Computed example of a mutant assay.
Amino acid sequence: MNEIKTQVQFVEIDDDMAGQRIDNFLRNHLKDIPKSMIYRILRKGEVRVNKKRIKAEYKLQALDVIRIPPVTLTEPQQDTAPSTKLAKVAELEQRIIYEDEHLLVLNKPSGTAVHGGSGLKFGAIEALRALRPQARFLELVHRIDRDTSGILLVAKKRSALRHLQAQFREKTVKKYYFALVMGEWKNQCRVVNAPLLKNETNSIVRVSQAGKPSETRFKVLERLPNATLIQASPITGRTHQIRVHTQYTGHPIAWDDRYGDRRFDAYTGKAGLDRLFLHAANIQFVHPASEEAMEIHAPMDSKLEGVLSQLRSLASA
């Protein structure tokens, strides 16, 4: 790897970049230098805003002028960005179900993480950046589990990111998932309020009074032999929330490697299932620019539809 020393840069902040902390701006602007170096040049006063020293928590304002000092960057390897010729990357182009100048909506396939890390070279956001090299800004609005398929919102402007994330914080975004669960889900089980606690060592989540308040709403969509297709709508956004709440009711999701039931996995495996049957099917939100009410639907993939068809044939046999 070669090292490159940059020149002094002066960046004027526009309305779209305003509102973010200076440390977060620098981490995004100087992607190839360690986070520790960013905080070091801030502490030493080498970064100036309007010719003045600032602290890491300073929030940028429109028309601020930032002086970024020379820094030594490590020249990235040629394969740092995922190749658009990789089948997994190219597939995502076909799975974009909505796009305009402010946001992009992806029907994420199961098995694709939303971002790289933990031994993964890249995730959905890195692949999208490779597919959209001209985009100045592409950031995840929210996350869904690697093995969950379906709707993933990506902001193409910082103003859109702030607007959409505010809607998530205010719980005005409505999300609906389809899940195939074990056994006969009771019609009267429409809401599960059970606090969830995450083990930071192994990321396993369990119901615990010491946990954070968590609420999921449920609706029966279809009854099948030894299984139920349900709609789940999380009101809160805890890690693995739907998966743990369905397990808590005694109806774990098919092919859930953490919270599932192996007997149910074997049963649904005979119908062709080999992945978690949890799909983010529908989302409702307000468009960050037009303020128009948006509703996006993401179809299930052919494998999940095929499993349902197989189970229906058992019911009619």
Results as ranks from 00 to 15, higher is better:
K44F: 11
M294Y: 08
R169G: 10
Y98I: 03
Y58M: 05
T228S: 11
N193S: 12
G211Q: 02
D145N: 04
H163T: 02
E93A: 15
L221G: 04
L63V: 11
K52C: 09
D32R: 15
I253Q: 10
P299N: 07
E295C: 14
S214N: 12
H142R: 00
P195N: 07
T112K: 04
V191M: 09
A56Q: 14
L196W: 02
G116K: 09
P109L: 06
E184R: 12
S83A: 07
R95D: 05
T268C: 11
Q20M: 13
M300V: 09
E91V: 08
T6Y: 10
R95Q: 05
A271S: 09
P213W: 02
L196I: 07
R143P: 10
T74P: 02
L308W: 12
D15R: 07
A280H: 05
K88W: 12
L197Q: 11
F285T: 00
V49T: 03
E91K: 13
I41P: 00
D79A: 06
F10G: 12
V307E: 01
S290E: 04
S302N: 13
I54C: 04
F218S: 03
T236G: 07
E46A: 14
L164H: 08
S36E: 14
L311N: 01
G306R: 11
Q209N: 14
S159T: 10
K186N: 11
Y259D: 02
R263S: 13
S203P: 10
D147E: 14
I283H: 02
E170Y: 11
E292Q: 14
Q167T: 00
I13Q: 00
K59L: 12
D265R: 06
V181E: 06
K52V: 10
D145T: 02
V207M: 06
K175C: 06
I144Y: 01
K219Q: 15
R132V: 02
Y267A: 04
V141Q: 00
K31M: 15
Q167C: 05
R67T: 14
V105E: 03
S233Q: 12
K212D: 13
R206L: 10
A130T: 02
L42W: 04
V207D: 03
E292R: 14
F10Q: 12
V307M: 09
L30I: 11
H240L: 10
I33K: 05
S118M: 11
G306Y: 10
V65I: 14
H29L: 15
A81C: 10
G117L: 00
N187W: 12
I68L: 05
I33R: 00
P82H: 08
F137W: 08
P252R: 06
D265M: 03
G260E: 01
L86V: 08
H142V: 00
G211R: 04
L138G: 07
G45N: 04
T72N: 13
F122Y: 13
Q241G: 03
D147M: 13
P133D: 05
H297K: 15
A315D: 00
D261C: 10
L42C: 03
Y177I: 03
E99Q: 10
A56P: 01
Q20F: 09
D265T: 01
F277R: 04
A155F: 08
G123C: 07
V141M: 05
A179M: 06
I38H: 00
L153K: 07
G183F: 06
E295K: 15
G117T: 02
A127S: 10
Y39E: 09
M17A: 11
D145C: 03
G45I: 11
A194Q: 04
R263K: 15
I144G: 06
R40I: 08
R162K: 12
R143D: 12
N28C: 15
S290P: 13
D16Y: 08
